[in-house]
């Protein structure tokens, strides 16, 4: 199978890669670029563990072709912290024990960040429905929702 040359932007950096026509963006990130923070839980868009940002919208990278990324802007979990400075969501997930096994965590963090980008003060119901495409089997979601609420409050500058 012939490969396709792709030039794109990932976490602010120019990146070039070759991929097969049928190769998902998730496989490109994980297998060709070493960005293994995005996880494959289902491969069919049902679990959200591979959530990444594509041109400002949150997507399942398992349902995007690597070839489609040409000229686009991609953000992954690896770009969420700035050096050692964690994003408030990352800090709050740790403080609230919002992860047990942690396999869904990168996807939740990316999806939650996408929510707070468009809605800095979401209700509990808005958080729950926005995150419905991210499956977690360990926590029952309670502490995840609380961590997102707390991070949102901190980012708004509200006293916790």
């Amino acid at each position: 199978m012939t490969t396709i040359a792709v030039s794109t932007t990932i976490n602010g950096d120019d990146v070039e890669y070759l991929c097969h026509a049928d190769e998902s963006l998730l496989d490109v990130l994980r297998n060709r670029l070493g960005l293994m923070g995005s996880k494959e839980g289902c491969g069919t868009g049902d679990c959200g563990a591979c959530s990444t940002m594509l041109d400002g919208r949150i997507v399942c990278s398992c349902l995007v072709l690597g070839a489609e990324a040409e000229g686009r802007e991609i953000e992954t979990i690896e770009g969420m912290a700035h050096g050692h400075d964690l994003h408030p969501l990352q800090t709050k997930f740790l403080e609230h024990a919002a992860l047990q096994c942690g396999i869904c965590t990168p996807g939740f963090l990316m999806a939650a960040k996408a929510l707070l980008d468009v809605n800095p003060d979401p209700t509990e119901e808005e958080i729950r429905f926005w995150l419905a495409g991210n499956l977690c089997r360990c926590t029952g979601y309670d502490k995840i929702v609380r961590a997102v609420q707390d991070a949102a409050a901190e980012m708004r500058g509200d006293a916790a």
Binding site: R30, L35, M36, G37, L86, F93, E95, L99, G102, P106
Partner: peptide, 21 residues
């Protein structure tokens, strides 16, 4: 008490390595 877990930062930054990683 409720301290942050030692494997926490790896898990919120995508660095933790699971079976397929």
């Amino acid at each position: 008490t409720r301290p942050v877990r030692p494997d926490g930062v790896d898990k919120v930054t995508g660095r933790a390595r699971y079976g397929a990683d």
